[in-house]
């Protein structure tokens, strides 16, 4: 009986290992970068994510939208209500129609979505040489390799190796599939000045913005893991009890 039970789990295990049969072919291996949210005990480093938001706001948001997030979500990163209201009020948001039937611009509020840099994908393409800067709301879930890939991409710009000719307007990146990416290296040393004195190296900025993007994609991550521990602990105890009951019930049969 135990043997067959083990057999059942072997089948499950085989399924689990057989499935990530994913995109092979383009075999660029993505290096593992240590993040605060790695592993099953990981949590978001709030200071890093806050700095990451600053990088997004000052650099990425010039081209990339994050339309699934609202300014109020920044409260979860540890910003105060006043700070969030101040950030929101820096942008102009279209609202309306008013009583005259006209659309109008007003100061942003915490309940507003992040302002998109372009009104529609066509405008985004037109402004970017035909390349569409993807929305970054769930980018960390939408790429193979997740946060590691994003970090590798942001720090992976280099001169093309000999023999590689770049197409017009393209840039060489060691980790982008095909190595030719339309986005120019977005992070340059000391591009962003952090208020907490963190040096503005490319590595620091990349780590921080990736932490922010991971949080944006999975804001529930910490709650999810904490709940998971409690539930599995509960189930383990219940499993022990259920097994004891089962043994007792079957005691007079065996």
């Amino acid at each position: 009986m135990l043997r067959t039970a083990l057999g059942a789990f072997a089948v499950i295990g085989a399924l689990a290992t057989a499935t990530p049969a994913r995109a092979a072919g383009e075999a660029i291996s993505i290096p593992n970068h240590p993040f605060s949210f790695d592993g099953i005990f990981g949590t978001y480093d709030r200071a890093s994510a806050q700095r990451g938001f600053q990088v997004y706001k000052e650099v990425c948001s010039n081209c990339h939208a994050m339309h699934l997030l609202s300014y109020r979500n920044l409260r979860e990163l540890g910003l105060t209500e006043q700070q969030v209201a101040a950030i929101a009020s820096q942008v102009q948001v279209q609202d309306g129609p008013n009583d005259e039937g006209q659309m109008f611009e007003r100061d942003g509020r915490p309940s507003d979505r992040f302002r998109s840099p372009f009104p529609n994908p066509q405008a985004a393409r037109a402004a970017n040489n035909g390349a569409y800067p993807p929305d970054l709301s769930v980018i960390a879930k939408a790429r193979n390799g997740g946060a590691d890939y994003l970090y590798a991409l942001l720090t992976g710009y280099a001169d093309p190796p000999p023999g590689v000719t770049l197409m017009d307007g393209m840039n060489y990146n060691r980790y982008f599939p095909g190595h030719q990416i339309a986005m120019a290296a977005p992070l340059n040393p000391d591009q962003v000045e952090f208020a907490d004195g963190t040096p503005g190296t490319v590595e620091n900025m990349a780590r921080d913005v990736v932490t922010f993007l991971q949080w944006a994609a999975e804001p529930e991550l910490e709650q999810r893991r904490a709940m998971g521990f409690k539930i599995i602990l509960f189930l383990t105890i219940l499993g022990g009890l259920a097994y004891a009951v089962k043994r007792r019930v079957w005691a007079d049969v065996h």
Binding site: F234, I237, L238, L241, A242, A244, V245, R248, A251, D252
Partner: peptide, 22 residues
């Protein structure tokens, strides 16, 4: 069961309580 009835009852009770909470 011929013996051990109290323990089984207690066990069943605790397990049922756990299931209820769950």
């Amino acid at each position: 069961a011929s013996d051990g009835t109290p323990r089984r009852d207690f066990l069943t009770l605790v397990t049922t309580a756990f299931v209820g909470v769950g």
